[in-house]
């Protein structure tokens, strides 16, 4: 059985941070396109600005499916009303690390941290809980993070 068939029918959530770092929206859309090809249904959780950036960037909804408010996402996983197979947490600041730790603690699953921005190494070093880290210094140019994602995503989704 290939990794492609194993993950068919699974669900993922992309937890977006503050959209102040330009690469976030592009990487989110790219990740959603990969997940869609693998048969994974992806949901986006974020604040209003982060959600609108994603929605405006994909008006025909080729990649974007359901979007939800980040507070509602936390409430629903905390109250066990909803669960996902993969939690991708976008991290470029301390708040992102706090959200990743919260999701890990609430779900007991290994979250996947996408760490980027000027201080990506500092943020990666703050993470001491079980987590798959995909980290690159990407601020305006998404390619370093995209390349890292291409390199490790097949392994990550087939092993979690």
């Amino acid at each position: 059985m290939t990794s492609e068939t194993r993950i068919e029918g699974k669900t993922a959530v992309l937890v977006l941070g503050c959209p102040q770092v330009p690469v976030q929206t592009g990487i989110a859309l790219y990740l959603m396109s990969i997940l869609r090809k693998k048969g994974v249904r992806a949901v986006v959780a974020g604040n209003r600005a982060a959600r609108l950036l994603v929605e405006v960037s994909d008006p025909e909804r080729h990649y974007v499916g359901e979007v939800m408010d980040i507070d509602r996402y936390i409430d629903e996983i905390a109250d066990k009303k909803r669960s996902f197979d993969y939690h991708f947490i976008f991290i470029h600041n301390d708040a992102g690390v706090s959200y990743a730790a919260t999701v890990q603690s609430l779900t007991g699953t290994t979250v996947i941290a996408l760490i980027y921005g000027e201080h990506f190494q500092e943020m990666a070093d703050l993470i001491e809980f079980p987590c798959e880290k995909i980290a690159a210094k990407a601020v305006h140019n998404p390619m370093p993070l995209k390349n890292k994602l291409d390199e490790v995503l097949p392994w990550v989704v087939s092993n979690l």
Binding site: D71, I74, D75, A95, T102
Partner: peptide, 8 residues
Amino acid sequence: DKHIIGVP
């Protein structure tokens, strides 16, 4: 009534 966010 809010779920607290943070690193334990």
